[in-house]
């Protein structure tokens, strides 16, 4: 999660992995992400055709259980996907936030995005129209991550192996990282404090508005 607002992360292996990966560089991920975008563009030309009205819209895909997010630039000629840390995403049109596994299941069309939204597993901020367009385009494309990438890495086998090596180390670290666990357990409490503070701030604003005089309203006869 790279934003202070939003949902709390589920206590999951992904979170443990995420907490442990925090200090590591993101650079090793980039060749895989770049290759993934190339493969998607080649395999599913319709996705970016469906997004052609968006014109280089920048999305932040923010898995709440990872310490970094993904910046997607939806350019129908040269779409890009980059791993970014907090503050590195720049201006984005929209943010889609949710647990990593939910985001992946949505990408693969295994679950319905609207349903995730109704159940609050998913949070959307910013340009809702762009998000709807992205969702529709991706859902219409029948992406299968395993079929498409993991068994067809080809020249990418090298970087992928490097990444999986890093991941293995991270996972090992996470399993022993009691501090991370404790932080995850404490997160809901901290969040509740944030919520109370936000609520007080909003009440203050409202009081301020009220004290500036209530708007004249027509009385119904």
């Amino acid at each position: 999660m790279i934003s202070s607002t939003g949902m709390s992360a589920p206590l999951s292996p992904v979170l443990l992995l995420g907490l442990a990966v925090r200090p590591l560089p993101l650079a090793p991920l980039q060749p895989v992400l770049g290759a993934a975008m190339t493969a998607v563009t080649r395999r599913y030309p319709n996705i970016f055709e469906r997004l052609s009205s968006l014109e280089n819209t920048r999305f932040l895909i923010d898995p709440v259980d990872l310490p970094f997010g993904f910046l997607l630039v939806a350019d129908d000629q040269a779409p890009q996907l980059r791993a970014v840390r907090a503050g590195q995403a720049g201006d984005v049109a929209a943010t889609i936030r949710g647990p990593l596994m939910t985001l992946i299941d949505m990408l693969e069309g295994k679950i319905d995005g609207d349903a995730q939204f109704f159940s609050r597993a998913l949070v959307v901020e910013g340009d809702t129209e762009a998000v709807v367009a992205l969702r529709n385009a991706v859902d219409g494309s029948e992406i299968d991550l395993f079929r498409d990438f993991l068994d067809k890495l080809g020249v990418l086998a090298g970087p992928a192996m490097r990444v999986s090596g890093v991941l293995q180390k991270i996972y090992d670290t996470a399993m022993g990282d009691l501090d991370s666990l404790r932080r995850a357990a404490l997160a809901p409490t901290e969040r509740r404090h944030d919520m109370v503070a936000t609520k007080i701030r909003r009440l203050e604003v409202k009081l301020d508005e009220l004290s500036r005089g209530s708007r004249a309203r027509r009385s119904q006869s």
Partner: peptide, 8 residues
């Protein structure tokens, strides 16, 4: 449509 996450 705009969603505002106001924390609470």
């Amino acid at each position: 449509v705009h969603y505002e996450d106001q924390g609470d």
